[in-house]
Simulated assay, not measured.
Amino acid sequence: MRISARTQYALRAVTELAAAPPGPVPAEKIAVAQNIPRRFLDNILLQLRRAGIIHSQRGPDGGYWLARPAEEITLADVIMVVEGNPEHSQRVDYPGVARPLADVWSALREHEETLLSEITFAHIMKDALP
């Protein structure tokens, strides 16, 4: 699986929000803490807000916060927002003795999806996998 820079930034931003004390976190604080270009981050935060992963508040006391508890937001949730539905390439039928390789690639994709759907941002905060 290849994770784009945009998706990595989104995951880091949500992790930053999961670690923050209750209340709005300014985008600038997230950008500085995670070394994410501000304009890039603004677009990502808008995308996450529209998807219902985070909430926002404008104004001098404004910022962003998680829309649900960190225990309820998985890595797959964020990846799906940023990357969209993963388009699985159609199954390739390999010739001859290489035919079982198609099953290996299919199982690998399935395990990736399962793992990313099990890991929540609460797990990330605890430095542990489920």
Rank of each mutant, 00 (worst) to 15 (best):
D103N: 07
L129C: 06
E83F: 01
I119R: 02
R49A: 15
I119D: 02
I30G: 07
Q57I: 08
N35M: 14
A19M: 11
L45C: 03
V81W: 02
G62Y: 01
L17G: 01
H123N: 15
A76L: 13
L46M: 11
D127K: 15
A10L: 05
A122H: 11
E87Q: 11
L46P: 01
I119K: 04
R12C: 07
D77A: 04
M1H: 08
T74I: 06
P21L: 02
A20Y: 00
I73G: 08
D61P: 01
P100C: 02
H111W: 14
R49S: 14
F121T: 06
A102H: 03
R2I: 15
Q8L: 13
E16S: 13
E16G: 10
E71Y: 04
H111C: 09
P100R: 00
T114Q: 14
A76F: 10
E110S: 09
E16V: 08
L45S: 01
P130Y: 01
P37E: 13
T74L: 05
P24Y: 09
H88I: 14
R38F: 14
I124L: 15
P37Y: 07
I53A: 03
I119W: 04
D61M: 07
K29V: 12
A76M: 12
A67R: 02
E16N: 12
T120F: 08
I44L: 09
G62D: 00
L66A: 00
D61K: 06
D93F: 10
R99A: 15
D127F: 13
Y9H: 14
K126L: 14
V25A: 01
V104F: 11
A5M: 09
A19L: 13
R49P: 02
H111K: 12
D42S: 12
Y94M: 07
K126H: 09
A98V: 09
L75A: 08
E71S: 14
V78Q: 05
T114M: 10
I79F: 03
A70V: 05
I79A: 09
